[in-house]
Design a protein around this nucleic acid. Structure first.
Length: 426
RNA sequence: GGAAGAAUGGCAGAGCUGGUUUAAUGCACCGGUCUUGAAAACCGGCGUGCCUUCACGGGCACCGGGGGUUCGAAUCCCUCUUCUUCCGCCA
């Protein structure tokens, strides 16, 4: 959520950003509406504080008069502030209403994009910041997509998932299941080496947490909701991991905070159908290791590049052909100021699969989370939050199977063998 | 699931028969005096948010969350949440 003061201070920048997100002039007018509503809020606040001060002063006087036994004077003072009291009641209701109005307007405004983010309509305009330097692998005619490989080697049973739960809930078995377990351990240990503290958070969160990271109300339809208890199944570990710090004021010297965690992720994926969701390309439940950092505004972009480098290292160790994109305005996530997407080339499907997304949210999440730090002058400031997948299992499994298939079987990359304790699936 | 008790500023801990408490006191922390330096001692500072002011400053709100009673609530009432203890049930 944007900070109202920012809209006052750097409106031009925000307008520019909204244009990058292809907002119309009319939509951009919401900024003025916010400022108008906030002006109203301020004047109401001033008037109300003034009234409260009168009542407070009178109450103290009444206390004194009562002690002195001057009951008549006390009574007349009481009746003299009755009118102010009812005025306070009205004003407080108005303040409540205008605050709600401001929040609703703000919730509809996406984060302000970093100046380096390009204009663009959609996916096709994303900027490739690092392309795969070598020739893309060509596996020839016999190459199989991962769902056929999964079937051939008895790694994943999609039908069984349908029986137990429904479509989009694959069941891993045998070496398929072991491969998942190995990847989880590999990713967690790599994160630990990179200085992240590991957490095993709850898989359900309350509404307050979902709101903190911006999943509510923006993406309500994407989450599974337990109505009876008011909980949401997490769509990513980002939600519980970032909410660890909700409401905190962190000491400057403790930054950056680096946390990681493995969790299953649950997504309703309402409205996605067709061939591009086949196999593991898009599922309702998948495993993911997330990395999260809390950082100062001065260093957050440096940190984002560090996280990008971490993900790169993982993909290199898994020996997968990848490229890095900087999302353009038209494709950028609502809450992010800048996002890098990682895509792995699937030689069998002959397409790029998104496997990671590393975002800097600047203060967009921390404003809702009330996550602050104390700067070198002792002043509290909103911290910057960042997160990235490192990495998401289902699609990594898909690309591992497809890219490392040979006539003899699927070769396990060297870095992973200590975790799988087998070097080939055949 | 039932019963009782509790929730106060970074921590500990008063206040809880409603009005000089503007939340005492201690510890921690920061600055200063003293000291070659440090410790000790002493002095001062020490929460968050909002409104207002060019500024100095002033005002308002916050004692787990929400609501109520009252001229006035940390203090009384209702409600929710969490914790502790006990009982029941159960991996």
């Amino acid at each position: 959520m944007l900070v109202v003061q920012d809209i006052r201070d750097r409106k031009d920048t925000i307008v520019e950003s909204l244009k990058k997100r292809n907002w119309s002039e009319e939509q951009i007018n919401v900024l003025d509406k916010v400022v108008v509503a906030d002006d109203k809020r301020r004047s109401l606040q001033t008037e109300n504080d003034h009234n409260l001060n009168k009542v407070n002063t009178a109450s103290k006087q009444i206390g004194g008069l009562m002690r002195d036994g001057k009951h008549d004077e006390a009574e007349s003072l009481k009746s003299s502030i009755a009118e102010i009291k009812s005025e306070i009641k009205v004003k407080e209701e108005e303040i409540r209403a205008v605050k709600l109005e401001i929040e609703e307007l703000l919730l509809g405004i996406p984060n302000t994009l970093h100046a380096d983010v390009a204009f663009g309509k959609g996916e096709e305009d994303n900027v490739v910041v690092k392309d795969w330097a070598d020739e893309l692998p060509n596996l020839g005619e016999g190459a199989l997509p991962h769902w056929e490989l999964a079937d051939k080697y008895n790694l994943i049973d999609f039908e069984l998932g349908v029986k137990i739960t429904g479509a989009g809930f694959p069941v891993f078995r045998g070496k398929g299941s072991k491969l998942c377990r190995a990847l989880i351990n590999f990713f967690l240990e790599e994160a630990e080496i990179a200085g992240y503290e590991e957490f095993a958070p709850p898989l359900m969160v309350n509404a307050e947490s979902a709101k903190g990271t911006g999943n509510l109300p923006d993406k309500e339809g994407q989450m599974y909701h337990m109505e009876k208890d008011g909980f949401y199944l997490i769509p990513t570990a980002e939600v519980p991991l970032t909410n660890i710090f909700r409401g905190d004021i962190i000491k400057n010297e403790d930054l950056p905070l680096k946390v990681t965690g493995y969790t299953p992720c649950f997504r309703r994926e309402a409205g996605s159908y067709g061939s591009h969701v086949k196999g593991l390309n898009r599922v309702h439940q998948f495993d993911k290791i997330e990395i999260v950092q809390i950082q100062t505004p001065e260093k957050s972009y440096e940190t984002q590049m560090e996280m990008v480098a971490h993900v790169e290292r993982l993909l290199e160790k898994l020996e997968l052909p990848y490229r890095i994109l900087r999302l353009c305005g038209g494709d950028a996530t609502f809450a992010a100021a800048m996002t890098f997407d990682f895509e792995v080339y699937s030689a069998a499907q002959k397409r790029w699969l998104e496997v990671s997304s590393v975002s800097n949210f600047e203060t967009y999440q921390s404003n809702r989370l009330k996550l602050r730090y104390r700067d070198e002058n002792g002043k509290t400031q909103l911290a910057h939050t960042l997160n990235g997948s490192a990495l998401a299992l289902a699609r990594i499994v898909a690309s591992l199977l497809e890219n490392h298939q040979t006539p003899e079987g699927i070769k396990i990359p060297k870095a992973l063998i200590p975790y799988t304790r087998f070097d080939i699936i055949n």
